[in-house]
Design a protein around this nucleic acid. Structure first.
Length: 218
DNA sequence: GGCCAGGACACCA
DNA sequence: TGGTGTCATGGC
């Protein structure tokens, strides 16, 4: 593991797919809401909800904070797990309200303690916290998810039972602490998983050559 | 009609 | 700390 193959994999993915433009959102707050809504849920369902919130002009923390728990649950229904997610959004909004809804000020905070605070919010686990940190607050934290675990365990780089923190460490130790690199790499891994690394291996056409145990080493 | 999707929490041993 | 059940909609 001393040899750094991750940068090579990144280059292959970037060459194949190009920039992914993650996170797809207009504002930092929209990223945060999306990060919560997409928990174990198809992104398409999240888009439906985001569009509706936008339409009702509720995509501002001060506005969404005034919506009742019950109404919030109703609004986000298409995203699934709506009771849990409504509760999470409420807890998250409480957190923001306690900081005067000032996201710019939040960004100036130190990453480690900011992460610890986010993890204390009900319903916000490591992946959601890290997605918020990386894509909304622009902190260089590598976001790993189910796709990341599947892809890199299949390729033979990590055990499929590796912990979240273990997997995150695997990436952060090998890569330069580069915000744009972290943003892009995570997005590219998800794209790769969606195309070629589903529940059943579909290696044909996979752009990662020579670096995966399944690839033909030319 | 079954399977899965850009997780997290509660509860248990 | 590790395994299992629960939460839920919509697309394929």
């Amino acid at each position: 593991m001393g040899d750094k193959k991750l940068p090579l994999i990144y280059n292959q993915l970037y060459d194949a797919y190009g920039p992914q433009g993650w996170w797809p959102a207009k504002t930092r707050f929209e990223v945060m809401v999306g990060a919560i809504l997409t928990q174990n849920t198809n992104w398409k369902n999240v888009e439906t909800v985001i569009a509706e919130l936008e339409k009702q002009k509720l995509l501002k923390p001060e506005k969404l904070d005034k919506v009742t728990l019950q109404h919030l649950a109703h609004l986000i229904r298409p995203a699934g797990y709506y009771n849990q997610k409504a509760k999470t959004l409420k807890a998250f909004l409480d957190y923001l309200k306690g900081r005067d809804f000032n996201l710019e000020k939040l960004m100036r905070r130190e990453t480690k303690e900011l992460r610890a605070e986010l993890l204390r919010i009900w319903g916000v686990g490591p992946e959601t916290a890290d997605a918020i940190l990386l894509y909304a607050l622009e902190k260089p934290i590598f976001v790993v998810d189910a796709y990341t675990r599947r892809v890199f365990s299949r390729m033979g780089y990590v055990d499929e039972k590796i912990t979240y923190e273990g997997l995150r460490g695997f990436f952060e130790q090998q890569l330069d602490k580069d915000l744009e690199l972290f943003k892009e790499f995570h997005a590219l891994i998800d794209e790769l998983a969606k195309r070629h690394c589903k529940t059943t291996p579909e290696c044909a056409g996979c752009p990662v050559s020579g670096l995966c145990r399944f690839s033909s080493k030319t």
